[in-house]
Structure formats: structure tokens, C-alpha cells
Amino acid sequence: MDNHSLLSLIVYSVIACCVIMALVWLWSYKIKNAGVVDIFWSYNFPVIAIILLIFAPGFETRKYLICGMAILGGLRLGTHLATRVLKHLYEEEPRYAHIRKEWGANAEQKMFGFFQMQAISNVLLAIPFFISVMNPDPQISVLEHAAVVLWAISVVGEATADKQLSNFKKDPTNKGKVCDTGLWHYSRHPNYFFEWLMWVSYFVFALASPYGILAVISPAIILYLLLKVTGIPTTEQQSLRSKPEAYKKYQENTSVFIPWFKTK
């Protein structure tokens, strides 16, 4: 097994993710559905993890732990999104259709740039993985064990929230209603919360390695994106467009993000 420098690992990852996203853009152009980008944004993390698992020089057990977490987490989310998107493959999700409409005549060129930025974001967010797999220390620390437990909680929590929402939408009697059962009774976005918690677990894992504090950038970016950019704002805007009265009432009775904390 070859050992490679951190820079070469980053370069391999950037090339792999950018090529994948270029191919996904071609597919999205053909089917006129940019929603497929979400699937492969999730799947790109297992791709990076496999590159690190093969080429990184760190302690093998540590590599298997962090890369295994990244692979399983990315595959679970990506497959969940694929199941959702493939049901209406030739019908673009409203939030992407809205973006496409705003971009006008240059929408496809901008979409290509957007897809490439998603690829770059994959590598940037993978900082905890890069830091951890370079660590040669043969001792797995308490922090790393705690991070694995936190990661497991986040995966189960996110999967539970996704399943509850999926079951709610499958019931035809719920058409036009807002899911407010299970975890969704306590938070408008429990899936986003547990996704962010997963990135916190990667950060905690990286803290056991040299320069691990730098990994805080990943959960910080995810939190910013979820709260201010492509997560909660676009989701809530679409919900308010599709079911304004029901969603406004739902907003009044639930927390926006963290379950059980009424932070509007």
C-alpha cells in the first residue's frame, strides 16, 4: 500500500469529485433535473474516504474507523436521496426549478458551476477525514471512541427522521398537510439537525490528531449552510409557497432546528 502526502490526497479527491460532478451535470442537463446533485454530493464523501483508505499513511485502525463512518454515512444519505429523487426523475424538485427560473437563459452554465462548487465543498468539508488519516499514533483515544458513539446517534436520528417523513408523505390522507409527528413534532428540521451532529462527530474524532482543531471548519460550514443558505431557508420558502397557512401554524409551535428547544 502506497503512502501519499496530504497534498496528493487532496488533489486526488478534487479530481475525483469534480469529474463525478461534471458527469452528473451532463445527466442533469439531459433529464432537466438538477436535484440529482444532492445524491452525488452525498456519495462523493465515500469516494474521498476510499481514496484515503487506500493511500493515506496513518494508523490502519484509525483509518478504518473514520473512513468507515464517512462511507456508511454518505451511502445512507445518498441512497435515501436517490430513492426520493428517482421517483420523479424527469420532474425537477420545486426548489431547483425555482433557482433555474431565477437564473434564466444562463441557467445551465450556472448549474455546471454550481455542481463544480459542490465537488469542491466535498473536499473542503472532508478536512476531518484528511487530518485523522494522517495520524500514525497506534492508540485510539477516548475522544475518538466518543466520536464514534456520537456518529452512531446522529445516523440513527437522521434515518429515523427521514423514515418518519417518508411514511407521512406516503399516506394520501396527509396531502397538503405538514408532518408534525415523531421527531418532526419537536423540530421543523430534525434531519438537518442530525446531519449537522454527524459533522460534529467527525470534528470530535479529528481532535485526537495533530491540528485537529482545524476540523471545526466542517460543522461550522454545515451549520451556516443549513441555517442561512441552501438548507432551512430554501426548504421553508418552498413549504410556505406550497402550504402557507398550515406551515405558518407549524412554525409557531416548533423549534426551527434543535429538537426540544423552541428557538424560532
Rank of each mutant, 00 (worst) to 15 (best):
Ser5Glu: 08
Val11Phe: 08
Tyr12Pro: 07
Ile15Pro: 06
Ala16Met: 04
Cys17Gly: 01
Val19Glu: 00
Leu26Val: 14
Leu26Cys: 12
Ile31Ser: 00
Val37Gly: 04
Trp41Phe: 13
Trp41Glu: 13
Val47Tyr: 01
Leu52Thr: 03
Ala56Asn: 06
Thr61Gly: 08
Thr61Leu: 15
Arg62Gly: 03
Ile66Tyr: 07
Gly68Ala: 07
Gly68Tyr: 11
Gly73Asn: 13
Leu75His: 02
Leu75Asp: 04
Arg76Leu: 11
His80Ser: 15
His80Trp: 14
Ala82Asp: 09
Thr83Asp: 14
Val85His: 05
Leu86Cys: 13
Lys87Gly: 15
Ile99Ala: 14
Arg100Asn: 08
Lys101Ala: 14
Ala105Met: 07
Ala105Lys: 15
Glu108Pro: 00
Lys110Glu: 09
Lys110Leu: 15
Lys110Trp: 08
Met111Ile: 05
Gly113Lys: 00
Phe114Glu: 01
Met117Arg: 08
Gln118Arg: 04
Gln118Met: 10
Leu125Val: 12
Ile127Pro: 02
Met134Leu: 13
Asp137Lys: 08
Gln139Thr: 13
Ile140Gly: 02
Glu144Lys: 10
His145Met: 13
Ala147Gly: 15
Val148Pro: 05
Trp151Phe: 15
Ala152Tyr: 04
Ile153Asp: 09
Val156Glu: 08
Glu158Phe: 06
Gln164Thr: 07
Asn167Trp: 04
Asn167Pro: 05
Lys169Ile: 06
Lys177Thr: 12
Lys177Gln: 13
Lys177Ile: 09
Lys177Glu: 14
Thr181Tyr: 02
Leu183Trp: 13
His185Met: 10
His185Gly: 13
His189Asn: 15
Trp196Thr: 02
Met198Lys: 11
Phe203Ile: 04
Phe203Val: 02
Phe205Gln: 09
Leu207Cys: 15
Ser209Ala: 15
Tyr211Ala: 08
Ser218Asn: 11
Ala220Val: 12
Ile222Gln: 04
Leu223Thr: 14
Leu223Lys: 00
Leu227Phe: 01
Lys228His: 03
Ile232Glu: 01
Glu236Arg: 03
Ser239Asp: 01
Leu240Thr: 03
Arg241Val: 10
Tyr250His: 06
Tyr250Leu: 02
Thr254Gln: 01
Thr254Gly: 02
Ser255Tyr: 02
Phe257His: 13
Thr263Lys: 10
Lys264Glu: 03
